[in-house]
Design a binder for these strands. Structure first.
Lengths: 229, 229
DNA sequence: TAGATTCTTGACCATATGGTCAGTTTTATC
DNA sequence: GATAAAACTGACCATATGGTCAAGAATCTA
């Protein structure tokens, strides 16, 4: 190997990276539970097992730490926001999107709540992102949805409302985990629950918006079988 | 009139009531934007146009003020959580619920966000409510949904997930108003937008879950007409 | 008008906040 | 091992926090 084992105690940057991660993780939790103002560096430091000064040494300021967390979450987001084309199968695309979004909300619940908290506070740090990247992304998708509707592959629903519907319903299981657990009376949602929720959401959206598989150009055998029933 | 005009400057309790309302309104806004910890009595007082001491005189403590706001919101909620019976028309019931929920989220956006913020923070003040009243309500509804499914009036979807779907998607337009506006690029959502969203959500849920009108016992004329087309 | 009651609010308190800094320890480089 | 650079942290600062209190102002009751 060209580099020394990064997890070793003896390697230089190892403990720095470990501390940084500990701080980021602690901060994500505290910020997500109490919002930007309500979070305290003291609590973050305690949760990361470091003195407060050390947190500031690593992160510079509360503000910078917070922005860094937001950016990290946006990056995770971008990773699943792959582009689509009108030639794709609408059923596949929408199903995959719902699935990916649920998975992300569940694999990074604190980050997801952090985002929600930022939005609730009026998105003072995210205005740019909302009106820039994210807006472009939504409009792109919306255009494709409209083409699908024109080709009869789905009902002519407003694509923006559809995107928000998928967004809100998937996000809900991370942001409002407390509520879901409180009401269902469970300790936690297991993988089976998650799979059930995912399937349910996919089914409702697909069926509710009349999303269909595209007609293959040259009818393959399966299509004939399907028309047969 | 038995009592003096409550809005008059000369009536005794009038200004007290007015101050109280000003405080509650200001507090709802500040708490909803910054969460319990992040909110400061100073800012609430300033926004209500009163000295901080006066706020404490009226409300006792930050905690009491916050709890009072939560209770007020729960009361508004209960007002639309009327009970249903398996004999009702599923289409009507679900449509009315979505409509009422959207209306409430829009008429009291700050209160709605306050609730969301409380949940994000782990619902330290609402555990009881979630596991008590609200849970009972959800289970009641779920039981009715199941009966509808058995009678073939809707698909056999998990009723709890359905309720959460309606919940999250309707709540979204209040809680994430900033996001919606930022992405759509609008200044505000007008009544037409709201009506469009409402119709869209109703359509997707009704169609997506295969919700049907019940067969009337003795087919009235309208049913024949409907079957005609 | 007199006395009691309720309101109102500035001054104040203990505590906690984000952030600075100087001094120390640890690590890298020669 | 000497020196420089990076990492660390306790003491400290100005400010803001939720809350108390006493004393004045307004209102009600007689």
């Amino acid at each position: 190997m060209a580099k020394a084992d990064p997890t070793s105690e003896h390697e230089a940057g190892a403990i720095r990276r470990r501390n940084e991660q500990a701080i980021l993780q602690a901060a994500e939790d505290v910020f997500s539970r109490h919002g930007y103002r309500g979070a305290s560096l003291q609590e973050i430091a305690r949760q990361a097992g470091l003195p407060k000064s050390n947190v500031l040494y690593y992160m510079g300021s509360k503000r910078k730490l917070y922005v860094r967390l937001l950016e990290r979450m946006m990056a995770r987001w971008n990773a699943i926001l792959d582009s689509i084309s009108p030639e794709d199968d609408p059923v596949e695309v929408i199903s995959a999107f719902i699935r990916a979004k649920i998975r992300l909300s569940r694999s990074h619940p604190a980050g997801s709540r952090l985002f929600a908290s930022e939005i609730l506070g009026g998105a003072p740090f995210l205005q740019e992102y909302l009106q820039g990247e994210l807006r472009d992304w939504v409009e792109n998708r919306a255009a494709v949805f409209r083409q699908w509707a024109e080709r009869g592959l789905m009902d002519p629903v407003d694509p923006v409302w559809l995107i928000f519907l998928i967004w809100s319903s998937t996000q809900h299981y991370a942001d409002f985990e407390t509520q879901v657990l409180g009401i269902t009376g469970r300790e936690a949602l297991d993988d089976d629950d998650l799979e059930g929720i995912t399937r349910f959401l996919i089914q409702v959206v697909i069926k509710g918006c009349g999303v269909k598989h595209p007609e293959p150009a040259k009818t393959p055998p399966e299509a004939i079988q399907a028309a047969d029933r």
